[in-house]
Design a protein around this nucleic acid. Structure first.
Lengths: 323, 323
DNA sequence: GTAAAGAATGAAATGCGTTTCAAGTCAAGC
DNA sequence: GCTTGACTTGAAACGCATTTCATTCTTTAC
């Protein structure tokens, strides 16, 4: 396949001139420019993207590390990321980590290898020191709260949302507020926040219960059985996902309880499921977060300002019941 | 940052030897190998991935073109693609097309530019000739039925599934079988197949109706209103998505009809929604398709055999009602 | 009329590995 | 003792475009 040298030779100009035409430099004589373009067309020439990347030291590609187990709560986020990246003429490398630390840190070396210009970290298992160590090799932005101040982040203020939800439930007079989460508090910061928010909000002796390891509909059914078979039946439940909430609702019905008559339930991530079943769900506006994360990652001030975006989003509380 | 030259100099060997160490060539003296590795560690050296790509003429990256409007029915597919690609040590560039032909064809030039080793095409608007023309520059595999025999494809046999569904509904004795789809028949092959399957299966004069432009829950509610406000109320509905089906069920209830007492409904893509609401849904096993598509794309026989995988999957028909 | 600014262009260095080719060392085989 | 094959190793070509520097030719300005 033809390269820039062939084009230069055939057009009777130097390689530099061809490069200038390619990069739309001013100061190229019109006739030569046209000649070069004609030759490029004739030879069906394309630049070699890898040579460009090597030469320019820039790839116009960003990497996005996502756990990608199977539940797709990253969909909205990725959507936002793709949209903004496309706008800024960047491409997106999707890096599934399956929550494995080894895989995650191997992705960070892509920066060292100059294969990407920056990394967006969604939920991850990396230790702050690991991130810091590798952020020397390139830009990194977290889409989750990052415990290290030095790593720029754009993230939903989950804690504020949790506080808001628990306060809302408390003010409504519920006394048995159960809540669920996914990974256990040791490996999941958001689980810790959830527990902490509960403890800070509800200081009285409530008969609440906490359940972790909830990820999907079946898990919801499982913990629903635990909740409604129990002597202490919840009057409000705050789940960590709409699917889980749906499972709990289904389970409740088999035990003779029905939503919304017998209990209040609040989901998370605001998926079509909460819309369909008509329960409120906390919406973190992940699309916006994705877009902002890309903007921050690719902004010129990245290196200097190191902003820590803090986004405070509120729970959607108008229930639109299925009736 | 250190490059291979620096390493060679410091280790007192030639560049070639360093390269051999990097690529784990046999036939490098143990002492030199260790020395080189020590120096690489000392200098905190990393290969420049772009130089490697340029030099080897291979990127170990594949591109996946997805419409990425907003509904995430590509999630499972992408999951499969990521999994298999990761297994084969390939990386995945996610290329959103927003169903725009210009964008889609711009992505195909990535092959010419040697920036990716192959392309996976999901739902798209490209003309067969466009695909064929560009498949000369690299490997392309379609994850949808491709009208051109020369383009290798791995795809669900939607037509067979549609036939199966309509036959199932016909055999159950339904007479007013409404069905929905997304894009209109001019731009969407699957809409055409749906209509064709209906016509081939149900030759009698049924009072069925067809509705397009259905994409989400709200659309489902909208066409549900049309269906149940009408004098001809359906006794069976085949939708083109679980969200749409959920919308129709919700709408039906506002009109005094309820599922499953008054009508049968079948969804598509087998998402958690059909599980939650308890209606059957056609499952195309997109994860498996994604995996197979990657395997085909990266297999050595790709160039020679040009197989057209045809996967025949069946409708999930066991309903597990919410009740 | 001449200096200064602007336009146009090519040679060569640069970014960084991979791979081929030739050559040299050393031990086993006859 | 000599051939043969297995190891080792480095020089140099190759993959391909970008960019700096120097040079030459025009204009414009005073």
């Amino acid at each position: 396949m033809a390269n820039i040298k062939d084009v230069a030779r055939m057009a009777g100009v130097s390689i530099a001139t061809v490069s200038r035409v390619l990069n739309e430099y001013p100061y190229v004589a019109k006739d030569k420019q046209e000649k070069v373009m004609a030759v490029m067309k004739e030879l069906n020439y394309s630049v070699n993207g890898n040579a460009v990347k090597l030469s320019k030291g820039k790839t116009n590609t960003i990497g996005v590390i996502v756990p990608y187990n199977n539940n797709s709560c990253y969909d909205e986020l990725i959507n936002g990321i793709l949209k903004k990246a496309h706008e800024l003429h960047y491409q997106v490398l999707l890096l599934p980590s399956y929550y494995e630390n080894v895989i995650e840190s191997s992705y960070l070396t892509l920066l060292k290898k100059k294969m990407i210009d920056g990394i967006l970290l969604t939920s991850h298992t990396l230790h702050p020191e690991q991130i810091l160590a590798l952020s020397e090799w390139g830009k990194i932005v977290c889409c989750e709260a990052c415990p290290v101040e030095l790593v720029p982040s754009v993230f939903p203020d989950r804690f504020a949302a949790y506080i808001e939800v628990f306060t809302y439930l408390k003010n409504k007079g519920y006394k048995r507020i159960h809540f669920t989460s996914g990974r256990d508090f040791q490996s999941s910061p958001s689980t810790r926040l959830r527990i902490q928010a509960y403890q800070e909000t509800i200081t009285e002796a409530y008969e609440s219960q906490f359940f972790d390891q909830c990820f999907d509909y079946q898990d919801g059914k499982r913990v629903g059985d635990l909740m409604f078979r129990n002597s202490i039946v919840p009057d409000a439940i705050f789940t960590n996902g709409d699917e889980v909430a749906a499972g709990i609702i289904a389970s409740a019905q088999t035990h003779g309880y029905s939503y919304p008559q017998d209990f209040e339930i609040i989901g998370e991530e605001n998926t079509p499921i909460s819309e369909i079943l008509g329960f409120p769900s906390v919406d973190y506006h992940q699309t916006a977060i994705g877009e902002q994360a890309v903007s921050l990652l690719l902004s010129d001030e990245y290196a200097r300002i190191q902003i820590r975006h803090q986004l405070n989003f509120r729970a959607r509380t108008e229930a639109s019941a299925l009736s």
